[in-house]
Amino acid sequence: MVTSKGANLLEPGKTPAENISFLVFLTAVIKAVDEYADLLRLSVASAGNDHRLGANEAPPAIISIFLGDELTEIINAIENDTFFKSKKAQKMDIGATVLPHFFRDTTDRNRTSPFAFTGNKFEFRSLGSSASVATPNIILNTAVAEALSQFYDELKKSKGSIEDAVHKLVKKTIKKHKRVIFNGNGYTDEWVAEAKKRGLYNLKSTPDVLPTFIEKKNVELFTKHHIFTEPEINSRYEILLENYCKTLHIESKTLQDMLYAQFLPTLMKFSDKVAASIEAKERMGLKAKAEKGLVKKLDAAYEELFVYAEKLVEDTDKAEAMDDLLKRAYHYHDKILVEMGQIREIADSVEVYFPAELQPYPTYADMLFYV
């Protein structure tokens, strides 16, 4: 966040004027992220990103802000009108306008935070690799603009020194929005419970978050700042829903094709080979105990997969017959995704027995080491 002359507004300064600016813009971002966390989550919502969030070094679906220990202590000192002592033993009188210079936190310690302050900038880390940065930028810039607009309206009414007015404004904003600040591990169940206690959004899936786009407060935000008209918001909402449904429809149809055209025939072929081996061994007077156990597993998996495949076809057809896009999206999320996961689990359990020449697809090892 910079001025037209390139000055970084989130750079902690060494002078009173610089520090006032830093505090105002810092608290504006905190306020914006807290009030419009639903929109920030919406800006990164997709069928693919739903799988990613909350695992594999990706932040969780709960939007929170990481400030680092030292900046959090400064924020707490401002809120409580106490003295702040930095690591270099510098004191700050919170009633004054001076924020002590402190070291930038460039260590990037908390990979589980979706929105982290790293010295002189914020990083929004929830985007998937295929996502455009346009939507998060539109939403974040508009939300911060709204916070700054409210700050301006309040400050222009103030009497007395601007320093005192800013101090009161910053203190009030911190008190109201500090719930969104979290420096801990975002992957833990304790954080999920704590976030709920704080009243933060936990919008785990795309169907959960998309309806927030058309909520009154969000429509008012975009229309006030002339970003979108209400019809444009509604059309984008429908497009996002339809895109989610189409993505999962394609995934479902692809899985059906993989099952019927390749995996199930391969499973049957391998099962037949094992059964033939059992017959050959029994003719030799051998028990073939291992092969009999294996063929039972293969047969049971085939039966289960066939039933799930038929159910997947049926439920996918049901989804496409639904006129209500939100209901269709939830149907894909609650039924189709679950069924695809169950199919994947069964297929994974038996494909490990397939010999290399019968594998219908490249294995993970093939893709990782031989491509």
Rank of each mutant, 00 (worst) to 15 (best):
I250C: 00
F122N: 08
P360R: 07
L240C: 03
K269P: 00
T107L: 12
G186R: 03
L71G: 04
I74H: 02
Q262A: 15
A55Y: 06
A61E: 11
K172D: 14
I336K: 02
E215K: 08
I65Y: 02
K204N: 07
E79A: 09
N243Y: 08
M322I: 11
S271C: 09
A145T: 10
F83E: 13
S277D: 15
E154R: 13
E18I: 01
A77E: 05
A165S: 15
I343G: 02
C245Q: 03
L39S: 03
L294N: 07
S4A: 12
A96I: 09
D164G: 14
A37S: 14
A61V: 14
I63S: 01
K204H: 03
T112L: 10
V307Q: 13
K269Q: 10
R104F: 05
L203Q: 04
A28P: 06
I346D: 04
F354G: 00
E238H: 10
M1A: 12
Y353C: 03
E279L: 11
T247A: 11
D81S: 15
G54K: 01
T107A: 13
I250V: 13
E35P: 00
I94S: 15
D366N: 12
T97K: 10
F115R: 08
T316L: 03
I63A: 02
I74T: 02
D257S: 14
E238M: 09
S161Q: 12
E11Y: 07
L23A: 14
D348K: 14
E194K: 04
S64M: 07
Y36T: 02
A45P: 05
T212S: 09
N110F: 06
G128W: 08
V352K: 12
D299N: 14
Y330W: 14
K217G: 02
N49S: 05
I62A: 08
Q359N: 09
Q359R: 10
M1D: 13
D348H: 11
L286S: 00
V44Y: 09
S43V: 04
D38G: 04
S126C: 08
R198C: 00
H167Y: 13
I250S: 12
H226P: 03
F228R: 01
L169N: 08
K31Y: 11
K178R: 15
G184E: 06
I30P: 03
A329W: 03
L99S: 01
L169G: 01
R179S: 11
H167W: 09
I20A: 13
K269M: 08
V350G: 11
L210M: 09
N56S: 13
I214F: 02
R236K: 12
M1E: 13
L23P: 06
V313D: 15
A47G: 14
L200V: 01
Y308F: 09
Y201E: 11
E123A: 12
Y370A: 11
H226V: 07
A89G: 10
E190K: 12
E35D: 06
K289M: 04
I336T: 07
E279C: 01
T106P: 04
I65T: 00
K335I: 15
T363H: 01
R52K: 13
R198H: 01
F270H: 05
K216R: 09
G160R: 06
K224L: 02
K273D: 15
L71A: 04
A55W: 07
K175D: 01
V371A: 15
I138Y: 05
T15F: 07
P265T: 03
I20E: 15
